[in-house]
Computed example of a mutant assay.
Amino acid sequence: MKNLKIATILLVVMTIGFSFTAIEKITVKGSDTLVILSQKWAEVYMKSHPNASIQVTGGGSGVGIAALINGSTDIANASRPIKASEVNKLKARYNTLGVEIACAKDGLSVYLNKANGVSELTVKQIGLIFAGKITNWKEVGGVDAGIRLYGRESSSGTFGFFKDNVVKTDYSPSCQTLPGTAAIVNAVKKDKYAIGYGGAAYAEGVKDCAVKKDDKSPAVLPTAATIKNHTYPITRYLYMYLKSKPTGEIKAFVDWILSPEGQKLVVETGYFPVK
């Protein structure tokens, strides 16, 4: 009887141990632009895949890629392409160039307060505003009032993409950096003379600025159609980066994200599918 009890206890312990080892943990870290979408992906995926445990955190694209390099995350979310210097660090540590997966498309909106009389700007004008070269709304057809700038912190992929593709120089020292797109939207919503930038999905309580590629081009709002066909001038891909080709549960999760079911959540969150 005593031996039977011991055998039963051992069987229970082995069963519990097996149940723990059967759970595969996946960590996702990086772009704040992708946090809400990634959390939805994780939530829906785990409902139909009980053996997967997916943890999603933000911090910015640079933070996510740094975590990928130091081995503390499986997937790095980024709203900008990986830098050559970051690829070199991956190669030095893991002897791999990494794997880039475009998982969604996004229009980078320029946010204006709803009371602002200005409704459209050229890409050049937006760049000059954030560089501090245009400082008054009257210079772009608005009222005589100073322009107040709100932007992301330097670890943000949105910060880097906007700098490289729109500002094309250093940001104005007067640009107030805020930790997350939602904070920028909130600031612009409360400030009549403010301007900010961020993902199109976050534009609630503010108005999107219609953007002109140049003086002769039409002004275009960020919509599903204009982002899909690239007529909206500030369009970008959103990425997932991995150290190497995914396998096991990570591969299953990535494949599901790119499937019609995963891409449907992209649309529901306010972004746009890659295909």
Rank of each mutant, 00 (worst) to 15 (best):
L265H: 09
S244M: 05
K264M: 06
F272P: 00
V267T: 15
T158E: 14
K207Q: 09
S155R: 11
K91H: 11
G60F: 05
K138Y: 10
P179H: 03
A225D: 14
V185K: 06
V63C: 12
S61M: 00
I75T: 12
A131Q: 12
T181F: 00
A52F: 13
A200P: 00
G59M: 15
V35W: 08
V87N: 03
G151L: 06
H49N: 15
L97D: 14
L128F: 12
V266F: 13
S259H: 14
G127S: 13
G248A: 05
K213T: 12
I134D: 04
F159I: 09
V56F: 02
S174F: 07
T235G: 01
T247V: 10
G198E: 06
P233W: 01
F159D: 04
G151V: 12
I227P: 00
G64I: 13
V110W: 02
T96A: 06
K124C: 07
I69K: 03
K168L: 12
P173K: 12
V118C: 10
Q263L: 06
E268C: 05
I75F: 06
L178T: 00
T135V: 15
I184G: 04
L68I: 09
K207A: 05
L149F: 02
S61D: 05
S38P: 07
S85D: 07
Y271I: 04
Q55D: 15
A187P: 00
S244Y: 08
T73S: 14
K83A: 10
V211L: 11
T169Y: 08
L238R: 00
S119G: 15
P179G: 03
D164H: 07
D208M: 10
A145I: 03
G64Y: 01
L97F: 09
I23M: 00
Y271S: 12
Y193L: 10
K2C: 00
I69D: 02
Y271K: 08
Y193C: 10
H49P: 10
V63T: 14
V44Y: 02
G248E: 04
I9R: 00
N113C: 07
I101S: 01
A210W: 13
A42V: 06
L108M: 04
I23K: 08
T269L: 08
G58M: 14
S259I: 11
D208S: 10
G30N: 00
W256N: 08
A203G: 11
C209S: 13
P179C: 04
D106K: 00
V44K: 12
K190V: 02
F159G: 03
D215R: 05
C209Q: 11
I6K: 04
